[in-house]
Design a protein around this nucleic acid. Structure first.
Lengths: 249, 249
DNA sequence: CGAGGGGTTGAGACTCGTCAAGTGACGTGG
DNA sequence: CCACGTCACTTGACGAGTCTCAACCCCTCG
């Protein structure tokens, strides 16, 4: 990983949405080939953050959205009481900061979970561009409403489901997101700590730990630290009740 | 109320965002006076739904967003297992359907909680218009990101807070939304049933009921059925931990 | 080598869901 | 007019799931 950085920087920073392997997940998805240059004009590519660094901070003036290029990011809200609430994990190809587009300031803090590179989209320029490119505007609406739906799904998970169901759902979500990037959907390493998982899912760390070992004893997964292998995906899906409609009546 | 309907319908349906008392909460907010006509061109105003009627249904083709003019709406998702999850309550001046802008179909079902009138914004025309009016586009981004934030707040409430805290938060949210409309913030009638509250907050109906009576015994609220009076707003805020930062250190 | 963080495991306490019964308001039909 | 069913809501008793507290292990890093 490390040796790639000077290499990338040796190239001109622009003109590389074209070659980016994530362009089918990211903003360029929506854009005709000949408009891609206009998007590239406004993007600042290839900024690198090391593990634990903040991409942006809650209440700082809102300037940009960020697309994850490699690595991963967690976003969280700090409440008035000082508690942290993790609101999401972002993997390569996903866009961070959409929840802040309403306000002058960032609505949450974004932190790199590992060495992470991002592309930066300054909002003023982005909004200007979306006004000119209807497809891009449509795509932005699409992404934002997707974010709302995700959050609703999360709320549902938190309000109705047991610890096992929540964790199964998270594992499956991660699995499908790895798959989108053509990586193994059954064999991956969690970018986040147990603590973050617990916080995100509204559980205690101990509960997360217990469920992991329970799944392991049942032969559904294999887990050593952050290395996870999904042994029985269907069993996981059963746990999330995805299939319960068929056995209900 | 009832006699207003034929009266309104006697007028031409257009040209009334100008007079609408909610225009400072709704989409017109963002728009210069002389552009308002263009918004009005695409709006279908004054559709009425009676209690229990569906404004739109999950999985039906997505056509329009709706602004609540009077009355109130609840949105909910039906899971594969057939359970309902209430995702939001919408009061006059608020926009319903933003979570569906990603897909071909509505992401949830919207149901009138009482006799409710709405204005309809067909999305194709709306998107076309936002492409031409940067302020309107900005406002749409604003509303959508607000919706994301709301949903994150909800997720936080569901994952970290007790039954009392959730209900206090809901009461305060409703209170401030009544106040926005220049109605009493301490004396209002809940548009939704206990059942909906419970579902929305991830609780059992019985728990909601118990908390209501507990608050009543503590002299914080007075509640008879859906009629609610907030007797001690500060106590409610204390319950939600909004102020706990000051007493923490 | 010790310190410290992340993760696991166990025991007890507590919140909340479930089950069950009961109340009051409302509308229907005899 | 009253009996009745229905529906929304309330109240109580009990039990399950999860949190808290505490100890412990393992690994990394200084």
């Amino acid at each position: 990983m490390a040796q790639a950085i000077p290499f990338r920087q040796a190239f001109p920073l622009k003109a590389s949405c074209h070659q980016c392997s994530l362009s089918n997940l990211c903003l360029p998805l929506a854009i005709a080939e000949n408009d891609l240059d206009r998007l590239e004009d406004i993007v600042q590519q290839g900024r690198i953050f090391s593990r634990g660094e903040h991409i942006f901070d809650q209440s700082a003036p809102f300037r940009s959205c960020f697309a994850v290029k490699s690595g991963s990011i967690k976003t969280s809200i700090i409440t008035e009481g000082g508690e942290e609430q993790v609101t999401g994990f972002f993997m390569p190809g996903e866009l961070v900061g959409l929840d802040s587009m309403s306000s002058e300031n960032y609505a949450c803090t974004a932190k790199a979970l590992e060495r992470t590179s991002v592309c930066e989209f300054p909002v003023d320029k982005l909004e200007e561009l979306t006004g000119k490119l209807p497809d891009l505007q449509h795509h932005m609406f699409h992404l934002m409403s997707q974010e709302i739906q995700n959050s609703h799904q999360l709320a549902m998970l938190l309000s109705k489901n047991t610890a096992e169901e929540r964790i199964a759902a998270l594992l499956l979500s991660l699995s499908s997101r790895f798959q989108r990037r053509r990586m193994s959907p059954t064999n991956f390493s969690l970018p986040m700590a147990r603590n973050d998982i617990a916080n995100f899912l509204g559980l205690a760390v101990e509960t997360v730990s217990r469920v992991f070992t329970r799944f392991q004893n049942q032969g559904i997964i294999k887990a050593r630290g952050r290395e996870v292998e999904l042994l029985d995906v269907e069993a996981l899906q059963l746990v999330t009740r995805e299939f319960s409609r068929q056995s209900n009546p």
